[in-house]
Simulated scan of single mutants.
Amino acid sequence: MELPLVVGVDGSESSLRAVDWATDEAALRGVPLRLVYASLWERYEGAALAEGLGRPSEQVMAEDIVEAAARRAHRRAPEVKVTTGVLPDDAASVLLNEAHTAAALVVGSRGRSGLAELLLGSVSLTVAGRAACPVIVLRGNQDNQARAGTHRRVVLGVAEEPHSTAATRFAFEEAEARKVTLDAVRAWRCPAYESTDHPLLAGEPARLHEQRAAEILDSALSKAAAEHPAVALRRRTAEGSARRILLDASDDADLLVVGVRRHHGLAGLQLGRVAHTLLHHSACPVAVVPQRG
């Protein structure tokens, strides 16, 4: 049985954008789409939903919301099988439970511009930090589609092996499904204490760090590249912090993929500084892919 893409819906604009994006993604992958509504959603996101729909909150029925979302998905991609669920729990708990039987979760961010765009909702942040499956958070002003996109480029932030294996595989699959270039990036930095003022040696420490970054790239990508020979792969090393380099790369990407380590038995968010920054500031959708370790 193929695992579905799962989307949390609440009738808001951001969740409808997530439905559109996930419908395209499901069509690309050839997998089912599952739309879920948490009956305690307002505990997290407030009562603004009801006001936005022009009805008092007691009249906003969960069945209406998921059925409208299902009709929207069917109009967009009639070939995608859609199922729905109304589950009596808070939004984060519902999505985290669904993650155990999902190919990926797709969640929206709160706004399109200004301060609203910088504020990632608590549900999205919690799910990205704890889910057992990949989580795609729709950052930026994307055009509500997961097809080839505007830039025709998926960016992968490459970490040390073996912790980047799952993210690498996910990024190759996305690039292949979309028929776009995969831009694999490894950031490197030369610590200040390794530098020297001698003009003949000034470049040596930096060269060694750059060489090490290139070796990490080759090691991380070799297996997946052999398994996906149709993917146009571009390797790139860049000097600087991973957060800055990947944020810059998100400006002209359709999807940014990063891996995060999940430590068995630990509670709370398990994102790391790079993923946390990207989720709040990326200019394009971000896929957070868990790697056990």
Rank of each mutant, 00 (worst) to 15 (best):
P4G: 01
V6W: 09
V7M: 02
V9D: 00
E13F: 11
R17T: 10
W21I: 05
T23Q: 05
E25C: 06
A27G: 07
L28G: 04
R34V: 07
L35G: 05
L40Y: 12
R43V: 15
A48G: 15
E51L: 13
G52K: 04
L53I: 04
L53R: 08
G54I: 00
R55I: 05
P56R: 04
V60I: 07
V66N: 00
A68H: 03
R71S: 14
R76M: 02
P78A: 00
P78W: 00
K81F: 13
V82C: 03
V82L: 00
L87G: 09
L87D: 09
L87E: 13
D90A: 10
A103G: 09
L105R: 07
L105I: 15
V107Y: 01
G108H: 02
G108N: 02
R112F: 11
S113C: 06
G114K: 05
A116L: 12
S122L: 01
S124Y: 08
S124E: 10
A128I: 03
C133V: 06
R139M: 07
D143S: 08
D143L: 11
N144K: 15
A148G: 09
T150P: 11
R152N: 09
L156D: 00
A159E: 12
E160N: 15
P162N: 03
E173S: 15
A175V: 04
V180D: 04
L182K: 06
D183Y: 13
A184D: 03
W188S: 00
P191V: 01
A192P: 10
H198I: 14
P205A: 04
A206R: 10
A206S: 08
H209F: 02
Q211T: 10
R212H: 13
E215G: 15
E215N: 15
I216L: 13
I216C: 11
L221G: 04
S222A: 15
S222Q: 14
A226F: 07
R236Y: 05
T237L: 04
A238W: 09
A238Y: 07
A242Y: 00
A242P: 09
A242I: 01
R244T: 14
R244H: 14
R244N: 14
D251W: 14
A253G: 07
A253W: 06
V258Q: 03
G259A: 02
R262M: 12
G265S: 06
L266C: 08
A267R: 12
G268C: 10
Q270A: 06
Q270I: 05
Q270R: 10
G272P: 03
A275Y: 01
T277K: 10
L279R: 00
H281I: 05
H281W: 07
V289K: 03
